[in-house]
């Protein structure tokens, strides 16, 4: 029995810009339908200008012109409280923010106010949703940081006094202090070194499991997805092109773009030549007709340039939008099947 916390149906969000008296639509989110279950980490993968940030903006109710929701619906279910961020009033949104829905952003330097101590930033963000007085609030924040194994001395620091990894841990602390049910993490570890990246990911996952929260985790780095997420949605040029459990996407991709993304990951201990994808992502103002991937797709046939492939089920919880989904094979034989004891041939 599925119990989705977030249901997105037929969502279209365009940047509508007037140019020389003509309206130009930049179709950043085009017909996206997906569901996110309670307690899962859902990864969104895609390259820059694929529309993943626009999708998140809509989901986080940060819709500012020229971005407009053209069609479709977004529905959060916070323990029976149904809310659509595209239609909700400011007051309603203020009520769910931080308490039910929070974010972890990429540049921790621009999230944390540089001229305020971390403690004041905590107050700015979380005191109102928590509804606690000064001393009780401070005690609550200290307890929370303690729990995350962060020194409470960071509360007295300014952001520039902390290392990048510590700042990113503080933003995780900030995003989780109100124990939200849903978090959006946008490239939270992209700017970090490998050693610190692993620690921060591990912290985020531990907190998520304890709270039973759901996370939308956005990154272009497929190796982070492999280790962090339960399911992945692959976004290409504003459309969801494939979605499925993480393991399935890595072992049995059913969209040529996914197959390429997985195959292009180099690994230590493996020097087989890795294929590179030619061409460039299309412009969202004037996307190609039919399947948006067809100009770069090695498997494209005539139908691909004519008709948009629907996102259809190709297996257990696995959907793909490709006319030739049955014929897609992994481009490089997955080496990890041997290591993992041959699960899924």
């Amino acid at each position: 029995m599925s119990d989705p916390i977030l249901t997105v149906e037929g969502l279209k969000a365009y940047y509508r810009v007037g140019q020389f008296g003509k309206n130009l639509d930049i179709r950043a989110v085009d017909d996206v339908t997906m569901q996110i279950e309670r307690g899962e980490i859902y990864g969104i993968a895609g390259e820059s200008s694929s529309g993943k940030t626009s999708l998140i903006k809509v989901l986080a109710a940060a819709i500012r012109p020229p971005l407009q929701v053209i069609d479709g619906s977004v529905r959060y279910d916070f323990g029976g409280r149904i809310i659509d961020p595209t239609k909700a009033s400011k007051a309603e949104l203020a009520e769910i923010r931080w308490k039910h829905l929070s974010y972890i952003m990429q540049g921790s330097m621009s999230v944390l106010n540089p001229v305020r101590r971390i403690e004041q930033t905590f107050r700015d963000f979380a005191q109102r949703p928590l509804g606690l007085s000064g001393a009780a609030f401070r005690a609550r924040v200290e307890e929370h940081l303690d729990h995350l194994k962060l020194p409470t001395s960071v509360l007295r620091s300014y952001p520039h006094e902390l290392s990048g990894g510590m700042r990113q841990r503080v933003t995780i602390g900030l995003a989780t202090v109100c124990r939200p049910e849903f978090m959006i993490a946008d490239e939270p570890t992209t700017a970090l070194d490998v050693v610190v990246q692993k620690e921060v990911l591990s912290l985020l996952r531990t907190v998520q499991q304890e709270m039973g929260a759901s996370i939308i985790f956005v990154t272009h780095d497929m190796s982070v997805h492999a280790n962090m997420t339960d399911r992945i949605g692959i976004v290409y040029a504003g459309r969801l092109v494939e979605e499925g459990p993480t393991r399935t996407l890595f072992t049995q991709p059913k969209h040529p773009y996914t197959a390429h993304l997985v195959a292009s990951l180099p690994m230590i201990g493996d020097t087989r030549p890795r294929p590179a994808l030619e061409g460039r992502p299309p412009s969202l103002a004037d996307p190609p007709k039919g399947c948006r991937f067809h100009p770069r797709c090695p498997m494209a046939t005539e139908i691909c340039s004519r008709e948009v492939p629907p996102l259809e089920s190709v297996g257990d919880r696995h959907r793909s939008a490709c006319w030739h989904a049955d014929e897609v094979r992994p481009l490089v034989e997955p080496a990890f099947d041997k290591a993992a004891g041959g699960v899924r041939a």
């Binding site: 692993k198 492999a226 459990p245 993480t246 990951l265």
Partner: peptide, 20 residues
């Protein structure tokens, strides 16, 4: 050895072992 151990492995996608 630490750098190598911190590289996110692809050995078991979806089963994420993130222990530092």
């Amino acid at each position: 050895r630490l750098l190598k151990a911190s590289v996110l492995s692809l050995d078991n996608p979806g089963g994420g072992d993130l222990t530092p």
